[in-house]
Amino acid sequence: MSDYMKKTDWYGKLWIWTGTVVILCVPIAVCIYYNAWPEMTAVLKGLLGVAPIYWTLGLIEVVTYTPMLGTGGTYLAFVTGNLTNLKAPSALNAMESAEVKPGSEEGEVISTIAIATCSIVTTLVLVVGVFGLSMITPIMNSPVLKPAFDNILPALFGGLGIVYISKNWKLAITPLLFMITLFLLVPSLASSVGVLVPVGVIITLTAARVMYKKGWV
């Protein structure tokens, strides 16, 4: 492992632990300032509604996305969020355009640059948006623009998909057929697409392994 990679891991840990403290300090600061500590039972009951799903999903996401995003990219993306709808697609797109392999040190560098840029731009857009919210809200909520934001995922994955699938069509056939069939049979799964990413990964890996052993890929 290069010196850069070792240091990235060290700095990454430092930043993410500091980030955890900063994020935990938000509710603590509000509680102290307003002297308004919530009822423990209310927090526990609230947590019961989300924690079983999101703690499991958190573990699955860390295992699935860490190899894709690389060390620096992971430490950054898990602090700044919006992994599936922004960070992972932008890292993949950047590595494709720069013609570097994910998993290599060049891939690590390009992925980190993409995720950092993504975080900075998103944060700045939100800053501008928040201060101009009274002006922006009617535009963003207008029925004319609503379909655009309702369809952001197909618009994003259409462009990304064609590039990646056309280059690896043999590997793509099995998971695509499986997922299309699954969503046709059980449309309600659309709301839990995040859980299906690791399922897609396992199916692709199994199909890839079989094809690799048979010498088809």
């Binding site: 190899p67 599936t84 994910p102 997922m179 659309a190 990413v197 396992i202 692709t204």
Partner: peptide
């Protein structure tokens, strides 16, 4: 196989989202 593994990870993600479009 290492390269195929990485490609499969991304394809797994893409296939889940492309499948969702058909819901």
């Amino acid at each position: 196989w290492g390269d195929l593994f990485m490609t499969s990870l991304f394809l797994g993600m893409i296939s889940a989202f492309l499948g969702m479009v058909f819901a």
